[in-house]
Every structure is written in structure tokens, then in C-alpha cells.
Design a protein around this nucleic acid. Structure first.
Lengths: 142, 142
DNA sequence: TTCTGTTTGCAATCGGGTTGCATGTTCTTT
DNA sequence: AAAGAACATGCAACCCGATTGCAAACAGAA
């Protein structure tokens, strides 16, 4: 299957040794149309222990294969980075948290607008999360 | 003391019955030059139980006396709102989290820049947190 | 004062995240 | 192929910030 090769390639690009579980986790993250929490992954990968998922996510984060989003829901969410991403300021995009369905979306096409800081402060990264209703939920309410 | 009257006035403006502990908490938040976590408050108000601090903060939040900032540190931080603030989009300002000293600052003068959302999405609030080094810590490193 | 509702402290609980350790698997060397 | 080292995984326990149940303390109304 061609997809398998894609997963292997993504792992190789980030210097991550491919294991069955890492492929499973990556596959699940790529299949999602949104960012998953650890619990989301646990619920979808019932055969895999949560500590293993945690360590896999930690590994992926360290190798910049995925990025973490703190959407304020109390649990971090994770999504696969673009292939050219190094998780630096220029790579940052905005995120959207739906307060109705509690899903978190990456707006990869919407770059985070920058502000000028007071003297002496320096930026390492920026977290920009918009909270509101997603298109599905806003539609349902009408 | 004139300050006492200020605290009472702030509570009254938000329809919060003043108690000794509420005054203590408000005083501590106003004295700070930054946003405090629950733990920060517990450490400064050692005579007050942490559940009481929590319930006080919850009350203050519900009455828009303070706002919460999720700086990604794992614990929320709290700061007193401006007197004209309703915690709506127009009232939002940016925040700064120092990755060295772990303090969180309100940049009340820096408004959050907005972005245009995809069709169907609607904004309720925005969390904009810049992470990096504050002026104190950036200075020390040199 | 007495009654009622609110506020507070203490202890217990919850839940996401994290770690220690033993087992299982893979890789390397011979 | 066998032996040993290194890595990956599962299980159980733990950590810590947040939250809740409950009873005692307190404040205000009758």
C-alpha cells in the first residue's frame, strides 16, 4: 500500500525508527481532520497502552514530527507538522477550539499575526488559539 | 485606608459580597505585577485553604472581576480585569510567558491582532500567549 | 436569640500526565 | 545460529493541579 510508504518516509525524515505502534499512531494522527489529545488516541488505539502512546507522542514531539497545541481544554492536542516545519516562529499557525464539540482544528493556512514586544522581551514561540463555534456546530444551532 | 475602599468598590462593581478572604485575594492579585496561579496564591496566603482560594477565584471569574490565562505551563494564571472589561473579544490583550522564570505577564496595552476565519467559524474569545524570555531573564543571560 | 443561607477548612477524590520496572523485541557481534 | 546489548512495550503505581463532599463557622434576616 502506498500509504505505508508515506508513513515510513515521514518517520525517516525525522530520524524516527519505525515500529508497528509508531506507524499506528502516526496513521491515526494523519487520518484525523483535527488535533488529537492523548485520550483521543487511547480511545482509538485500544490495543496500545497509554504510556506507550505517551512515549510515542513525546518522541514525535522531540523530533518535530508533530506539534502540541494548548487549547485551554486542560489536555494538550497533537497534530502532524508540515514536512518543512521546524516548529519555529515562522512555522506557527493558528488553532481553533470549538467550545461546543470540543474539537481542535489546525488552521495551517492562517499564520499567526505578530505584535511588537516591550523592550527586553524576546519571542521563542507563540500560541494563538481562537475559541468559538466550528462550522459544524454553528450550523446546527440555527 | 484608601486602598481598602478601592477593593470594596471593585467587588461591589462586580456584585461580589465582600468577605475578609475575598479582600485578601483581590489585594494579592492587585499587588502583583503579573498573573498568579492558584499555587502562587496559596504560597502567599498561607492562612487560607487552597479550596477556598479556588472557590474565590471561580467566583471572581464568574463575575468578570478577573480573567484566566492559559500560558501553557499546565496551571492557569489569573489577573484582575480592567474596570471596563467584560472579557469579550474587544477586551482581550496579549500575554507573555517567560520560559526561564515561569512568570506570566499581561500586556494590557497590546491588543490581540485578529485573523479572518474560514466560513462558518465564529469567534468567542482568543488566547494569544507569547513565550520567550522576559526582560529580566534576557538581561541576566548576557 | 433563633433560623437560614453562605462561607470556609479539611479531607478525599478526580484526571491528565508521567515514571519504575519487568518483559518482550530487535539489532549487533561473534 | 547463539549470546549479549539496546531499545520498545505493557502494567501498575505515582504525581500534582484541580475539584468536590461534608461539617463547622459565620453572617444576615426574622
Amino acid at each position: 500500500m502506498a500509504n505505508e510508504e508515506l508513513y515510513l518516509k515521514l518517520l525517516a525524515q525525522r530520524d524516527i525508527k519505525p515500529t508497528a505502534i509508531r506507524l499506528l499512531v502516526l496513521k491515526e494522527l494523519l487520518r484525523a481532520d483535527r488535533a488529537y489529545s492523548l485520550l483521543d488516541l487511547e480511545n482509538r488505539l485500544v490495543t496500545v497502552d497509554k504510556s506507550t502512546i505517551f512515549r510515542t507522542i513525546t518522541l514525535f514531539l522531540g523530533h518535530h514530527l508533530i506539534h502540541a497545541i494548548d487549547d485551554g481544554s486542560g489536555s494538550l492536542k497533537y497534530a502532524v507538522c508540515g514536512s518543512d516545519c521546524n516548529c519555529e516562529v515562522d512555522d506557527l499557525h493558528t488553532h481553533f477550539y470549538c467550545e461546543s464539540c470540543h474539537r481542535t482544528f489546525c488552521f495551517k493556512q492562517i499564520h499567526i499575526p505578530s505584535v511588537s514586544l516591550p523592550d527586553g522581551f524576546s519571542t521563542h514561540s507563540i500560541n494563538y488559539v481562537i475559541k468559538g463555534l466550528c462550522s459544524d456546530c454553528a450550523g446546527k444551532k440555527r
